[in-house]
Design a protein around this nucleic acid. Structure first.
Length: 134
DNA sequence: GCCAACGTTGGC
DNA sequence: GCCAACGTTGGC
């Protein structure tokens, strides 16, 4: 089992919409590092869903329901996965909470602001989800 | 709305 | 292969 975090601007695609629709093709990624992360996702991996720009918080946990395939939006060499909602956090975990937690200083969300699909250590995943279920 | 950080492009 | 110029992301 691997753990990941994906970002989305809620005005473009929100956690609430994923709950409503039940699944989503996570496509449109146009960054090599993020693409490589998508390609390493395995069925059943857990994925934190983070709202960027507005909200600035992890709002839920999704699961990988289909491993990487050709991004349907382009003929070029980009990949997409399919995600399904798994759990909504009782309380969103905000970026400021994450940034102020000493144990989370080395995660990509803090260190490399622009990466839109990133791996997470299990420890970091557990810390964030625990914070979100208090 | 600004701008820092980062990625990509393209000239040399 | 370097690096300047440019574009984009995303926090503030």
């Amino acid at each position: 089992m691997q753990y990941w975090l994906v970002k989305s601007e809620p005005s473009a695609y929100s956690w609430e919409r994923l709950l409503r629709e039940g699944k989503v093709i996570w496509d449109g990624v146009r960054n090599y590092a993020a693409r490589n992360n998508l390609r390493n996702m395995k069925q059943g991996d857990q994925v934190l869903f983070y709202h960027s720009n507005e909200g600035l918080a992890v709002t839920g946990i999704a699961k990988v329901s289909r491993e990487a395939f050709q991004d349907p939006g382009t003929k070029e060499d980009w990949s997409a996965v399919e995600l399904v909602p798994f759990k909504t956090l009782k309380k969103p975990v905000t970026l400021s909470v994450i940034k102020s937690d000493k144990r989370l200083q080395n995660i990509y969300l803090v260190r490399q602001g622009r990466l839109s699909v990133m791996p997470l250590e299990k420890e970091a995943f557990v810390i964030i989800t625990t914070l979100g279920n208090k």
